[in-house]
């Protein structure tokens, strides 16, 4: 059987809210080492990869590898019934056709149980090679969210260019153009406001803002977002959940028309 309990149930709620508009349904794969998901959006332009480590859970048991297909909209409906402070326990029997979610209030006075029907989902798994990137930028997640939102009111795509001192986000549209530059700032007083750039090679790539806006829905998960860029390769937009795992988004670059 599979059984996992997470004390910060709000975290699971945030993860599902971050991906439910991008992917319709997905298989949640569970094994000894943890709980993971990999899925492409319906137009196969972007890829979501979630991994939550077994030791990030308060209790974790997975007797045999299971793959549980769920419709994200339905999972979201159920998790919306959990309080942000609730502990959440997920349970499923081997070869079972449902997963049970148990929500427990911090004072343990209210205990709720919801069963979600599992589905058979055909999904293609892609191998993501470990790579060294031309540039890695770590910036406050809220800052990134604001940048992609603001630029979306001007254009459809953003050129992200990274040099050793700064990262620039630029767009052009019918009404004009916009450029936002963030300088490297390894602020020690307020680590949550730091912007760090690690660069092997200056790089500039163009991406669809619509997808970056969608990825930014993961902002509540983490103080910082990490952007990894290499020439002609997909961007990685990564949110780290301390002590628990990561949610990564991959987006193919736009090519010159």
């Amino acid at each position: 059987m599979f059984e996992a309990r997470i004390a910060q149930g709000g975290l699971l709620k945030k993860v599902v809210e971050a991906i439910k508009d991008l992917i319709e349904d997905a298989n949640f794969d569970c094994n000894n080492s943890g709980f993971s998901l990999q899925a492409m959006d319906s137009s196969h332009v972007s890829l979501v990869a979630l991994s939550l480590r077994a030791d990030g859970f308060e209790h974790y048991r997975c007797d045999r590898n299971v793959s549980m297909g769920m419709k994200l909209a339905n999972l979201s409906k159920i998790l919306k019934c959990a309080g942000n402070e609730d502990a959440i326990t997920m349970k499923s029997e081997d070869n079972g056709d449902t997963i049970t979610f148990m929500f427990e209030t911090p004072n343990q006075e209210r205990l709720s149980e919801f069963d979600l029907k599992l589905m058979d989902i055909d999904s293609e798994h892609l191998g993501i090679p470990e790579a060294e990137y031309d540039a890695t930028v770590k910036l406050p997640a809220g800052e990134f969210q604001r940048i992609v939102k603001d630029l979306s009111s001007i254009g459809d795509t953003v050129e992200i260019s990274v040099t050793k001192d700064a990262v620039k986000f630029g767009t052009t549209g019918d009404i004009g153009s916009a450029n936002i530059m963030c300088r490297q700032n390894k602020s020690v007083d307020k680590p949550e406001e730091s912007t760090e750039i690690d660069i092997n090679e200056p790089v500039a790539l163009t991406f669809a803002l619509r997808y970056l806006n969608s990825f930014a829905k993961a902002t509540p998960l983490s103080t910082h977002v990490v952007l990894k860029l290499s020439k002609d390769l997909p961007i990685v937009v990564e949110y780290h959940v301390p002590d628990v795992g990561r949610l990564g988004f991959y987006l193919a670059p736009k090519v010159e028309e």
């Binding site: 492409m40 137009s43 196969h44 332009v45 972007s46 890829l47 293609e124 798994h125 892609l126 191998g127 993501i128 090679p129 669809a208 390769l233 997909p234 991959y250 987006l251 193919a252 670059p253 736009k254 090519v255 010159e256 028309e257």
Partner: peptide
């Protein structure tokens, strides 16, 4: 989505 490449063009199926 003009000029947009598919993500599966970059990563091989497992």
């Amino acid at each position: 989505l003009a000029g947009q490449r598919s993500i599966s063009a970059f990563f091989a199926a497992k």
